[in-house]
Amino acid sequence: MTIRDWPDSERPREKLLLRGAAALSDAELLAVFLGSGLRGMDAVELGRDLLRRHGGLRPLLRLPPAALLRERGLGAARTTRLLAALELAARHLCADLDRGDPLGDPGRAAAYFSVRLRDRPQEVFACAFLDSRHRMIVFEELFTGSLDGADVYPREVVRRCLQHNAAAVIFGHNHPSGVTDPSAADRAVTRRLVDALRLVDIRVLDHFIVGDGPVLSFAARGWL
């Protein structure tokens, strides 16, 4: 039996239109994206196979482009569409803050950094440069490292703050391991950044660590 033989209410596309995207399983969402399966395997079965082999949706979507291209059932066309869809979703979630809305609410700020950094395969240290009303001037990825660390240079951070005429900043970096516990180096570099920026009257509002669970906030822990 193929998907065409399923009841209309159970076909992924029709089900999405009738009940909304949230009603679909991960495999069904992938099936809608894939459009068709392979010989002897419909689109839902192909979606299930991809999820099974990679341990779920997130590990699958974290694969680098070169690895996605090698996946059975994807190829160049589907891989490029998938990467474009992921970027569209990220931009949609970030759109309100990118257009200049205040970034003062800790929950919104944490969500923003999570969208930007959560699925990066290497550690990335980023900064949101804010004006005096805590509106976003620009978001920049300042330093990129390896799986377990990135070198951060306070002098370069100060230079970028002055270049953007920032009144305040929020820092964030990801832990590709998924564990958000801060290392001694994380806490030490945060203190160095706070001290360096205080000399030029720029406030550090928070430093987030992004992993698999809730985002860790230095401000909420009283570490700033």
Rank of each mutant, 00 (worst) to 15 (best):
A196S: 11
L61V: 09
A90C: 15
C127D: 04
F139P: 06
S146C: 07
L130R: 02
L88T: 14
Y153T: 09
D98W: 05
D148F: 11
G56Q: 00
A85E: 15
D201H: 13
L60C: 07
L97E: 06
R72M: 02
R13D: 13
G149H: 09
A219F: 00
A76L: 13
R48A: 08
R62L: 15
L162M: 08
G145Y: 04
P154D: 11
L82Y: 09
E45D: 06
R78P: 03
A21C: 09
V157A: 11
R11L: 00
H92N: 15
R52N: 14
D101S: 15
S9F: 06
R135G: 13
R120L: 12
D181V: 05
V44M: 12
L69A: 00
G20N: 00
A126C: 12
G100V: 02
P7W: 04
G55W: 08
H175Y: 00
E87A: 14
A21I: 02
R120A: 10
A27F: 09
L68G: 04
E71H: 06
A27K: 07
R53P: 09
P102Q: 04
A77R: 13
T144F: 15
D151I: 14
V32T: 02
R99V: 11
T190P: 03
P64L: 14
A77Y: 13
V157S: 00
F33A: 09
A185E: 05
A167C: 09
R58P: 10
M41Y: 02
A167L: 01
S114N: 05
R13G: 09
L97S: 07
A166E: 03
R187Q: 01
V169E: 00
M136L: 06
P7V: 07
T79K: 01
R135N: 03
I170V: 11
M1R: 03
D206I: 01
H92R: 15
L29D: 05
D42G: 06
V189E: 10
L63E: 08
V44L: 05
R72L: 05
D181H: 07
F208I: 07
G20S: 04
V215E: 03
L74W: 09
V158I: 13
M136Q: 06
P7Y: 14
A168R: 04
E10H: 08
D151C: 09
R52F: 12
S114R: 07
Q122F: 14
H207W: 05
A219V: 06
T144D: 11
L16Y: 08
V32A: 07
T180A: 02
A184V: 10
M41C: 07
L224I: 08
R48E: 14
R39P: 11
L69H: 02
V157C: 12
C94R: 11
R108H: 15
G149M: 12
F125M: 01
D148E: 10
M41W: 12
K15R: 01
L147M: 11
